[in-house]
């Protein structure tokens, strides 16, 4: 460890750290799933930014940054998008299922008696 350095990369690194903290706070505390998904993307942005700052500090060989972490971030962004898509679709289906059943919101969380998700049951009807 050396003394503190302060340059552009450090500034953005601190920004990433702050985003992680803000996002984590929202992800854990906000009760609404869509807000949780949004917060998850904020944390993701912060983590990617920290990764990007690490890449910037690894600038060498004529490259503006270490290409390996940059490539990892690209992979990470695409994976995070996929996760968002799955989560959003779950939220969407969940609220439409709740509306169909005429019991918006919480009501669905208490399983009707005897209903377990056992194979065959849901599909036999279709």
């Amino acid at each position: 460890m050396t003394g503190a350095t302060f340059d552009t990369a450090t500034l953005y690194g601190l920004c990433g750290a702050a985003l992680v903290g803000i996002g984590l706070f929202g992800l854990v505390l906000d009760p609404k799933p869509i807000r949780k998904i949004l917060a998850f993307n904020l944390v993701g942005a912060g983590v990617f930014l920290v990764f990007g700052v690490i890449a910037r500090r690894g600038a060498a060989a004529g490259f503006g940054g270490d290409p390996v972490p940059q490539a990892l971030v690209i992979t990470g962004i695409v994976v995070a998008f996929s996760a968002t898509a799955l989560a959003v679709t779950l939220v969407q289906r969940l609220s439409s299922a709740a509306t169909d059943a005429g019991q918006p919101g919480q009501a669905a969380s208490v399983p009707p008696k005897g209903e377990t998700g056992t194979p065959g049951q849901g599909d036999a009807a279709s």
Binding site: A4, A17, A18, V53, A60, A61, P67
Partner: peptide
């Protein structure tokens, strides 16, 4: 807890390792 994570991260950003390890030369090679 979230603040602690952000603080630790910030500390690691401000006090980086003496040499920043990089794979850039290897990638260039």
């Amino acid at each position: 807890l979230a603040g602690a994570v952000a603080l630790f991260l910030g500390a690691l950003v401000v006090f980086p390792p003496a040499v920043a390890p990089t794979l850039a030369p290897l990638a260039a090679e």
